[in-house]
Simulated assay, not measured.
Amino acid sequence: MELNLKGRVALITGSGSGIGRDTAFKLAEEGCMVVVSDINADTAHQTAEDLRSAGHSAMAVVCDVTKEEEVAHLVSRAQQYGGIDILVNNAGIVKDGYLTKMTEQAWDSVVDIILKGAFLCSRAVLPQMMEKRWGRVINISSRSLFGNPGQTNYSAGKAGLVGFTRALAQEQGRYGITVNAVAPGFIMTPGMRNLPHFSKLQEAATAKVPVGFLGEPRDISNAVAFLASDVARYISGTTVFVTGGRYSG
């Protein structure tokens, strides 16, 4: 299937590692010029360098997506490529704990990166998308939107991202802009594989997945690339669950 993304400019937040990094490579392979953004300078620059070494066009911009001035700088830097066509709001963190023991800082930092980050980045790139009358905003939610014990902050943020997606899709459709979300299930990122209890975690998670195996970052990046393309031009305001058939539980 031809996705026809050559020449598009894609900005992926939180793309120094994990799903974001894989998404950067997938969109680059489809012909996009990629703006790698991460709060971690080392991983951001390494990802961009790896992309360039593979023959792709890429730049790295260090950014805290909860800071308006840093997001403005990020979008300004992307103008070197001619403006952003595809925004992937992927930045997020986890700070798990039961609510009765959760600090205000743990709540604020998780919810702000997920929701405020998507708000600031989307607001910053939409005017240029509206002017072009073409754009894609893809928000990385999670199966956790259904609720996980010990993740009230993360689940609230990821569920809120679905409401954000639906509302923004209704606002922007008339400008040729689609807005969708991708909700990953258990994905075996390098960080996940490095957990000391990974084997037990993998066994327990696999038992709950109807297809019988766990996802890889490419399963998410493939969904993102599809939604970014004109093949998916009539899909907007929806959430694509990439979970192997697992929803709650």
Rank of each mutant, 00 (worst) to 15 (best):
T165F: 05
K158V: 08
K116W: 05
K132A: 12
Q202T: 09
F198G: 05
A72S: 12
G97P: 03
V231F: 11
C63S: 13
G147D: 03
V9D: 04
A41D: 13
F241D: 14
D50S: 15
A159F: 09
L145C: 12
T103D: 00
P217T: 00
L126V: 15
H73T: 13
D38I: 01
T23H: 00
C32Q: 05
A124F: 01
E70V: 05
K101H: 14
K101D: 13
A78P: 04
V231T: 08
M192E: 10
E131K: 15
S122F: 14
H45A: 10
Y98E: 12
G160N: 00
I114Q: 00
W107A: 02
Y81C: 07
A118V: 08
A232E: 07
G150D: 03
P196G: 06
L120V: 10
P190K: 09
G147I: 07
N90G: 12
I93H: 01
N180H: 00
G237M: 00
T100C: 14
P210C: 02
Q170D: 12
G150V: 00
L161A: 03
G14W: 02
G92L: 02
K95W: 01
G245S: 08
P149D: 13
L227A: 10
L27I: 08
E104P: 09
S155V: 00
S53F: 12
R21V: 00
V35W: 02
F146M: 12
G16R: 07
V65Q: 01
A91G: 01
G176W: 07
Q170W: 11
V242P: 07
T206L: 03
F226Q: 02
V125M: 06
K132Y: 04
L126Y: 11
E68C: 05
S53R: 15
D22C: 11
V179R: 08
G237Q: 02
L145Q: 13
A228V: 04
M129E: 08
I114D: 00
Y98G: 12
Q202V: 12
D42S: 14
T100R: 14
C32V: 01
A167E: 11
